[in-house]
Design a protein around this nucleic acid. Structure first.
Lengths: 154, 154
DNA sequence: CTCGGTGCAAAGCTTTTGCATCCGC
DNA sequence: GCGGATGCAAAAGCTTTGCACCGAG
């Protein structure tokens, strides 16, 4: 039987190392936020994260949530998406398969997909333009072919 | 000698047809905004468009600018980008080569590039997920290899 | 003990909305 | 003349900032 991977343990270690390297403090709030994020599935926005911590009677402020998310993004434990609306969406990003997003133009549902060819594009374009590509964001905007969509127009 | 293409004439025709089909009014403001956009190069945000029209003593409101941009996006004459910051960037999109963007993580400069393979990805993923992909947004985040960047860290 | 980090609330900015007026059709 | 569109300003919504206090190192 395969050994169960302790994702949260690994993530905590990475974050700790990051904070130490940068000479930042290992505050309980920062780890509580990290834990909350890795206990969730799918995308979330700042306010839903803040609210869910408040609901657990954890004393945090939005400012700290924003601050911690910035740190977590810098060490690639969390990624941020701007899905067109003016509300940033976040997502845990360690230990999960790299993926991109397709958004339904009818109901705004977000579907994840993987396509390894994006890596090739990244490499080619980076070489061509003399840039070292660190990460990317690919969003496909698409309409349901079959009428699964509730918000389907006409 | 090749005939000079009248991009703005074509664009105006497309917009007119769109407004007529949808039963919308062909107001002078809408066409003035379209003209202003097609006289500009590169990316712009709502406020810079609004300000530049104000500077020409044109009487418009931000509300109308937002409204018109929505219409122009619907008929694919303008595209909208969310480059990570919380300020939407727009760009004229008719008669110009389809392209994507690379953003320098040091100085936030935006570089355009073309890669036809993105079309293949769009097609494959669309077929796989049973969606009709209408358009996409690909952003590469990258660091300058050579030190062209003024904001280069360390 | 220091000073980075936090909570709280206020301020900042972009975008949306309400309403009286205007004008395309 | 009707009803959609506009201008203006106020409101809304997300994010940042200022400041006093707290607590990690």
């Amino acid at each position: 039987m395969a050994v169960e991977r302790d994702i949260f343990g690994e993530v905590k270690q990475i974050f700790t190392a990051y904070l130490e390297n940068r000479g930042l403090r290992k505050t309980p709030e920062r780890f509580a936020i990290l834990e909350e994020i890795y206990s969730k599935d799918g995308h979330f926005d700042v306010d839903s994260l803040y609210i869910s911590m408040k609901n657990k009677n954890y004393r945090v402020s939005r400012a700290t949530v924003y601050n911690s998310l910035d740190l977590l993004m810098e060490c690639d434990l969390v990624s941020k998406h701007q899905f067109g609306q003016n509300l940033a969406q976040y997502e845990k990003s360690y230990g999960f398969k790299q993926h991109d997003h397709l958004i339904c133009t009818d109901c705004h549902k977000v579907v994840e997909f993987c396509d390894p060819r994006i890596q090739n594009i990244q490499t080619t374009v980076g070489d061509l333009l003399k840039f070292k590509v660190l990460h990317h964001s690919l969003i496909l905007y698409a309409a349901c072919k079959d009428n699964n969509c509730q918000n389907k127009k006409s």
